[in-house]
């Protein structure tokens, strides 16, 4: 039917599967995000370090070239520390991407009262949160565990099956540490976005949680002469957990189990905030 005909006809065609509808949000949100040239540029910059790592892996397996350069072969070691450093750098980029992309996910819907339009359809709050979270999850996966695993596979291919078999746990470490960081960042960004309803303020809050949190932790440690301040430093907690996952020897002021518990606690708070705020209408009792 021509669209200019002003009459209404009911829809009698096929419907999509209910489980697939949260990807509708993913498609629209992602399209909106990548209209920003800054985000696109930042996303490209996120691949510089993995590319540098790729060169290092190649160099590590080019003994003749290293000899020409006069670099001893033992200087470049592709091991758990190498991948831990990759994860640390990419983790910072993941945070920057989240700070830019995360706050705009939910706050515009809340600010413009769009939530009733989502939830008056056969579409639940959980599906809404999953749809929005998938934007960040896939975006951050593309710069963390995906390049990490590609580098691991390349290294395994160059070093041989013996190295791959004995270092297989590193692949698991890459995956687990990335997923923890992605889940935490996604929940934090969405919770702040839902809480303040204003994209810029939510972005500032996200930066504040990371940087002021670290400063606050240092101040508490210094004033109270304790190490408990680290519980306010999310970055420190995450690095503590990553060190354990990558089996990197490092001194920590708080036990790994407590760092895990603290991160889970923060995730629970974020989930609680989200479930409280992501409603069609807020009930004022």
């Amino acid at each position: 039917m021509a669209v200019y005909r002003r009459n209404y006809k009911p829809y009698a065609g096929v419907l999509t599967a209910p489980w697939s509808r949260c990807f509708v949000l993913f498609r629209y949100s992602r399209r909106r995000l990548f209209r920003s040239k800054f985000l696109t540029g930042l996303f490209v910059v996120c691949f510089f370090y993995p590319f540098a790592c790729l060169l290092i892996i190649y160099l590590a397996h080019s003994a003749s070239f290293l000899q020409e350069l006069g670099v001893p072969g033992q200087l470049i070691s592709i091991d758990n520390k190498f991948f831990f450093n990759l994860m640390s750098v990419q983790g910072v980029f993941a945070f920057l991407l989240t700070a830019f992309a995360g706050p705009g996910l939910i706050s515009p819907d809340l600010a413009n009262g769009a939530l009733p339009l989502y939830f008056c359809r056969p579409f639940s709050r959980v599906e809404y949160v999953l749809g929005k979270a998938s934007v960040l999850a896939i975006l951050l996966s593309q710069i963390t565990w995906v390049p990490g695993l590609i580098l691991f596979i390349i290294q395994a291919g160059l070093a041989g099956p013996g190295w791959a078999w004995s270092h297989l746990w590193i692949a698991g470490s890459l995956l687990i540490s990335s997923l923890i960081w992605i889940a935490f960042l996604s929940l934090l960004a969405m919770a702040l976005s839902a809480w303040v309803k204003w994209r810029i303020v939510a972005g500032a809050l996200l930066l504040g949680v990371m940087f002021f949190g670290a400063g606050f932790a240092q101040a508490i440690n210094a004033v109270l002469r304790t190490q408990s301040g680290h519980f306010f430093n999310v970055g420190y907690l995450m690095v503590t957990v990553w060190n354990a996952i990558f089996r990197v020897d490092a001194m920590h002021d708080i036990p790994v189990a407590e760092a895990w518990m603290a991160l889970l606690f923060y995730c629970a708070i974020c989930l609680g905030l989200l479930m409280r705020k992501v409603r069609a209408y807020e009930v004022i009792r």
């Binding site: 509708v24 629209y28 515009p108 600010a111 009733p116 339009l117 359809r121």
Partner: peptide, 24 residues
């Protein structure tokens, strides 16, 4: 009350709502 997504065109907005209702 006001219920829309400000940075979207009307056609994208209505299309998205249709897709959320299950339309291809």
């Amino acid at each position: 009350n006001d219920a829309f997504i400000s940075k979207m065109s009307a056609v994208s907005f209505v299309q998205m709502m249709g897709e959320l209702s299950g339309l291809p």
